[in-house]
Write a protein that binds this DNA or RNA. Structure first.
Lengths: 126, 126
DNA sequence: CTGTATCCCATTCGATACTG
DNA sequence: CAGTATCGAATGGGATACAG
């Protein structure tokens, strides 16, 4: 009897862990622009604030600033201050933890690409 | 000259496609409970509405209904009506398209698990 | 150039009640 | 049992202005 209870509890805990782990990961790049920022930093390497903003033509600088801050707090990107022409310059780059997300992001990209192609074909052949 | 313009446009389109594809995929399971629902349906197979709800102890009736509806519209899950003891019974299951999301979900789960373990270790050793 | 504060709007989710 | 309608609360993001 205690065993069935224990088993139930273990299942419950595992269940919870499952959900938490998945939702935790999603929360890493669910903010607006986050997944794109990570993608850019991976392929372009270190980027300045303004460069990132230019690559996201629709991003407000307030929101971009927010997203970068959160990505930093989550340990996915690094922030370094420097000087360029005597003016403050901030450089962002992926951390090694951030790099470990790339395989997921690549899959997310390729799944979406294939799916959108498929949907387009379906649309035009109807 | 027209070539540089064209190249720019292609880059732009590609860029846009990149962003769209990634964000499209994320939108597939960004709703509350969606990723968990997909995960459950994969491992438990066909499930009834009430069963899914039981497995998500915190899910409201209404929200669960919404999420299932959207997952259906996105072609990720199937909905079948039937009768059990002369009462309406609805069965949900993954479509083949839904199944193609599983590799991503597995990676999302395992990344989160490892990351949370790491963070816990870091916390307790500080 | 980079970042923050404020205000507003839109969307999402929860609680509840109602239908077949 | 499964689903919908309505309302209120919370959250996220856009616009703008301001600061170091």
């Amino acid at each position: 009897m205690t065993d069935t209870v224990r088993k139930y509890a273990l299942d419950k805990i595992q269940q919870k862990d499952f959900n938490c782990a998945k939702e935790y990961t999603l929360s890493m790049f669910s903010g607006k622009y986050k997944i794109v920022i990570l993608y850019q930093l991976h392929y372009d390497g270190e980027m300045r604030f303004g460069e990132i903003q230019k690559s996201l033509s629709n991003a407000t600088h307030k929101v971009l600033s927010q997203q970068l801050k959160e990505l930093g707090e989550d340990g996915l990107i690094d922030r370094k201050e420097g000087l360029v022409n005597n003016r403050k310059a901030v450089f962002y780059s992926l951390t090694t933890t951030g790099e470990t997300l790339m395989p997921i992001i690549e899959m997310v990209f390729s799944w979406g690409t294939k799916r959108l192609e498929k949907l387009q074909i379906d649309d035009t052949t109807i």
